[in-house]
Amino acid sequence: MTEPRFTVETARVLAEVAHNRQKDKLKRPYREHVLAVGDALADFDDDIQIAGYLHAIAEDTPITRQALLDMGVSERAADIIERVTQRFHEHPDDYAAFIHDVAKDHDATLVKIADNAHNSLPERVQALAEKWPDKPPVSRHDDARPVLYTAVPREEVEAILRRINPHLLPELDELVSE
């Protein structure tokens, strides 16, 4: 008898439960963010979708890579999760270096594009700007997009943006020509 496979739906439920009581910078339920990132990757294979739902699990919960593997998460999905977890990088405080490292891996780049796009939703950017008027809310996200968008095929970026943040499509057109 084979063990049950760790599915996309399992990842979605785990993400919801693992982040259930967490809040984002705007005091909104953080699970909404992780679910949106996973949902934005619906056009891609299971490992990429699983990594999307679980992209913040190693950063924001006590769940380890080994625990994920023990639950049945594939090595590939665990690798993607690890690559998009900033604290695992050589220089975790250097966001630009982190983004360049993520962009070396196709699958991790897709997850990071979805994460970036959700964090860059107009209503979110506006709410952050109102909360902290002296601090540009997403300048690091703005700076990351050209690196991420040029690391994978344009149609893949477009598929993600159409699902999660269509407001970024004109910027994609400016950054990446056909």
Rank of each mutant, 00 (worst) to 15 (best):
R124W: 07
D115R: 01
D115I: 07
P122S: 13
A67K: 02
R83L: 10
K104I: 09
K135L: 13
A67I: 03
A127W: 03
R140G: 02
K135H: 11
K135M: 11
K135I: 07
R76Q: 15
P92S: 04
H141V: 08
L69P: 06
K104F: 13
D105C: 13
A129D: 05
A114E: 00
V102C: 04
R83M: 10
L128V: 07
R87Q: 13
N119R: 08
I80K: 01
L110A: 01
K131Q: 10
I113S: 00
L121C: 06
H100E: 12
D93M: 13
D101F: 11
I81N: 00
E90I: 12
P133A: 02
N119D: 03
K131Y: 03
D94P: 12
E82M: 14
E90C: 06
P122I: 11
V111K: 00
K135T: 11
N116S: 06
V84P: 00
D93T: 09
K104D: 14
V84F: 04
I99M: 05
E75W: 12
E82A: 11
A129Y: 09
V138N: 02
S120G: 10
D105K: 11
K135A: 09
K135C: 09
W132S: 06
I113A: 01
N116Y: 06
A117K: 01
Q126I: 13
R76L: 15
E123P: 12
